[in-house]
Amino acid sequence: MTLNRVSLFYKVTLASVRKFAGLMILLNHVFSEIITVSLIGAAVATSGLFGWNSIKSQTYCRFKECCDEKYIHFDLDKLGQSFSQRMYGQPLVNEITNILKAHKEGLYDKEKKNKKALVLSLHGWSGVGKNYAANMIAEAIFQKGIESQYVKVFMGKKDFDCTNIQETRNKLIAEVNEIVKSCPTSLIVFDEIHEMCPSILDAIKPMLDHHHAVDGVDYRNSIFIFISNIGGKEIAMNLLELYGQGIKRNEVDFHNFEPIIRRISYSSGGFEKSSTIAQHLIDHYIPFLPLEQQHVEMCALAEFRNHGIYHPTEEMMADALSVITYGPTEEQPIFANNGCKRFTKQVPYVIQKHKNNL
């Protein structure tokens, strides 16, 4: 046998072995699945639905997220700690914990069953913590936080522009229906409502209202969060007026802001002439107050700590804060116009700039 023939023989043999090995692996996987399904089927036949739920939690749900207490914690003590330790200058945001506690009672107490989905609307300038708060809520409720399959985040203009409105509305209904059908305690977030096409939001109006079920799906234990910059300027101006009346920041209440937010929202963005406002389906309007210098300094320090810098120098702090401008006017430089958002990139840059002095 020539050298070329020997080489060809070994190549063909090696390819055959690889194909055989691949086939054996595939068959092994198939047989394993058949055995697993057979065992589960036999157990279900023996013990019924209750037994299936128990078996599922011990098998499938050990490896895959399920809609049960293992993956859905509703740890509102954790949420309260997150707000107090990681949220700056937002006294009314702490009340979200109590709002969710009331909603949680409706999940487990038959005497206090929820009569509708919980709907929160977060308003304020960019960079004041609205998305941060939504992420904290997701982290407190779901083991996987915002990455949970039972959390859905829609983005204003990206998901809801003004082309093919009816098609978009139908798609929205189908997506929300599917996620809540898979888990009644799902969290649905609509971000950047100010960039959303008007009228689309009304597609989910029945899901937010006082209905036992919509198309066979019960939404009463689900949570909807709307996030927008709408009303940010009005919140800031109203806060200045309250300061002028001698009311301190930590003394403000929801009623100081809700009428203003509702009025502005009803003529803006995705909320324009929306039945979610007109029919009072939003349960709580949460004003995020504009941040003052002390609050943005706390944000900057927190960002430095995230990068392992626990004692930044005065020069580093000055560089970090150099991107912050104050308003609402030059004559009243009280509130940070862009909140804390710019620190995400500014602080790493400052650390690199001063690296040799650390």
Rank of each mutant, 00 (worst) to 15 (best):
D109M: 07
K110T: 06
E111M: 11
E111C: 08
E111N: 14
K112F: 04
K112C: 03
K113I: 04
N114Y: 02
N114Q: 10
K115I: 01
K116A: 07
K116Q: 11
A117R: 01
V119F: 03
V119K: 06
L122D: 02
L122P: 03
H123Y: 07
H123T: 13
G124F: 07
G124M: 05
G124K: 04
S126H: 15
K130M: 12
Y132E: 07
Y132S: 13
A133I: 12
A134T: 15
N135M: 10
M136D: 06
M136R: 01
M136T: 13
A138Y: 02
E139N: 15
E139P: 14
I141L: 10
I141M: 12
Q143S: 15
K144C: 11
K144I: 05
G145D: 15
E147H: 15
S148W: 10
S148E: 15
S148K: 12
Q149L: 02
Y150I: 05
V151K: 10
K152N: 14
V153Q: 14
M155N: 13
M155P: 08
M155T: 14
G156V: 00
G156H: 03
G156D: 07
K157D: 09
K158R: 14
D159H: 08
F160W: 08
C162W: 07
C162G: 14
C162N: 13
T163M: 11
N164L: 05
I165W: 09
I165C: 10
Q166N: 15
E167R: 15
T168Y: 03
T168L: 08
R169G: 03
N170E: 15
N170W: 13
K171H: 14
L172G: 03
L172V: 10
L172I: 11
I173L: 13
I173W: 11
E175Y: 09
E175C: 09
V176I: 14
N177W: 06
N177C: 06
E178W: 10
V180H: 02
V180S: 04
K181F: 02
C183G: 01
C183A: 04
P184F: 01
T185Q: 12
S186D: 07
L187Y: 04
I188Q: 03
V189P: 02
F190H: 11
E195D: 14
P198G: 05
S199M: 03
S199R: 14
S199W: 08
S199Q: 11
D202R: 12
D202P: 10
A203H: 10
K205E: 06
P206W: 00
P206Q: 09
M207H: 07
L208N: 00
D209G: 07
H210P: 00
H210C: 02
H210E: 11
H211K: 09
H211L: 00
V214M: 06
V214C: 04
V214D: 09
V214Q: 08
D215H: 12
G216W: 08
G216S: 11
G216K: 12
G216Y: 10
V217G: 09
D218G: 05
Y219G: 01
R220K: 13
R220P: 03
R220G: 01
R220I: 01
N221L: 00
S222T: 09
S222V: 00
S222D: 02
I223V: 12
I223M: 08
I225C: 07
I225Q: 07
I225Y: 08
F226E: 03
I227M: 10
S228M: 05
I230P: 06
I230D: 04
I230K: 08
